[in-house]
Nucleic acid binder design. Structure first.
Lengths: 130, 130, 130, 130
DNA sequence: GTGGTCTAGACCACT
DNA sequence: GTGGTCTAGACCACG
C-alpha cells in the first residue's frame, strides 16, 4: 500500500499525499476506511514517522482524511467530493505549465498530443523526477 | 527586460533562466546578442549578482548563452536550435503532470481544454505561482 | 577524506569534484554510499558550505551523486558507469594538450615518456598546481 | 598572422602568447624578426590593445621577445633556446594531467594512444575549449 | 568595465 | 539534522 519512490526528487511527504489521494480516487480506499497507523507505515516503508505525520496533517487540513487522536486516521465521508472540488486547482497547474511551455515556443498540438498519450498509457512506471 | 516575481515560489534563478529562454524563443534576444552584464541586471532587478550568475552559469551549461570572462555573456550562435532540442524534455514534464492528474480522476477532456485555452489566452499577466 | 589544496590555482570546488570522483573510481566510496553532509565537510575542510555545495550540485548534475533535501547526498547507483562514460571527454583534454605541446616542438617520444612515467609513479603527493 | 579564436574559453592573451611561441617554434617567425606593432595587431584582430600588450609583456618576461620602447618588439636572438628550456615545464603539465586521469581510472594505454594520435593528426582545427 | 571564485551568514523546506 | 536558495560583500583574472 502506498507506493513511495525514494529515488525520486519529489518530497516523500508529497508522494504520500498523492498516493493516498490516488487510492481514494481509484476506489482502493473507500470513505470511512481506516488508514494504516503512522507507526505501521513508518516501519513498512522505512520512512521517518515525522514525514508520514506531516502528510497526514496536510490531508486532514484538506478534509480528505480525519484523524482521531488515539484511534487513528480515517478517510473522510466526503473525501471523493472534496477531491473533485480540488481538481480545478490541479487543472490550473496544468494550464500554467502549458502557458509556460507555449511561451517557450512549444506548439499547442505537441502539448495536446503529450497530454492525450499520457492518459492513454496505463503504464505503472511512475517516474516522477522533481 | 526580464520579468521577475520575487513573491513566486519558483526560485529567482529559475525565473531568470526561463525569462532569458523566453526572450530568445520570441526573438527579442537574437543569436550572438550581448546580454546585460551581471552587475547591470543585479541593479536593475534588485537581485544579488550571485543569483544572476547562478542562472547564467546554468544557461551557459545548456549552451544557450556563452560567457567570456572580461567580455560579457552572449546568446550562443545555435541557441534557438538548442532550445528546440530541449523542448522534448519540457514536454515530458507536461506528460508527467497530466498522468498524475489523470490518476487523480481528472478527465482527459478537461485537461485538453485546459491546455488548449492556456495557449489561446495571449494574456501578459504572468503569475507563476509554484 | 577528500584532499584539498587551498594554495592550488585550481578552484576548490573543482578539487572537491575530482576528489569525490577519484574516491568513487578507486572504490573508497561505493555506489549508494552516503556522502558526508555539506556542513560536516565544511567544518572538516574549513571550507565555506557554499563552495562544497557548488561541487555537489555539479556532481549531481553529472549523475555521479544524487542529493535529497533533508536526507543527504548519496553516490548514484550507476556512478561508476557514468564515470566510465565521462572518460572519453577527459581523454580529449589530454589530446588537446598533447597537440598544443607538439606544435610547440615537443617530440612525441618525450610526451609518451612523460605520460608513461606519470602512470608508473604511484606517488601520493598530489600537488595540483594549475 | 596569429590565429586567435574569440569563441574559445581560453583567455585571449594566452592564445596570443601560444600563437607567437608556436610561430617561432615552427620557424615562421625567426630570431630578431620584428613583430607587428600592438596597434596593428589590435586593429587586425579587433582585440583590445591592453590585451595584446599583456601578452607581449609576458613574452618579454619569458625572454622570448624583447621590446624596445619606441621601436617595437623583436624575437629574442636566443628565443628558440629559451623555448626549448621551457619545454620541460610544459611536459610537467602533461605529466600532471596524465596522473590525474590515471587516478580517475583511465588506462595508460588509452592515454598513450590519445597522445600518439594527437601528434599524428596534422589537423588545423584547433578547438581549444577552456 | 567584465565574469569567476569564495566567504559569511541568513532563511526555508524536508526528514 | 539535511540540502536549497538568497544576500552581502570581497578578491581575482581578463579585456
Amino acid at each position: 500500500m502506498l507506493s513511495i519512490d525514494k529515488t525520486s526528487k519529489k518530497p516523500i511527504y508529497e508522494q504520500i499525499i498523492e498516493s493516498v489521494e490516488r487510492e481514494i480516487a481509484s476506489g482502493i480506499l473507500k470513505e470511512n476506511d481506516k488508514l494504516p497507523s503512522i507507526r505501521d507505515l513508518s516501519l513498512t516503508l522505512s520512512i521517518n514517522p515525522n514525514t508520514i505525520q506531516k502528510a497526514f496533517i496536510e490531508l486532514d487540513r484538506r478534509g480528505i482524511i480525519i484523524s482521531y487522536p488515539g484511534r487513528g486516521c480515517f478517510v473522510a465521508s466526503d473525501a471523493t467530493d472534496r477531491l473533485r472540488l480540488a481538481q480545478s486547482d490541479r487543472l490550473r497547474e496544468l494550464s500554467e505549465l502549458a502557458l509556460e511551455l507555449y511561451e517557450l515556443g512549444i506548439s499547442k498540438e505537441d502539448m495536446l498530443n503529450a497530454v492525450s498519450s499520457a492518459c492513454s498509457d496505463k503504464r505503472q512506471d511512475r517516474k516522477e523526477n522533481k
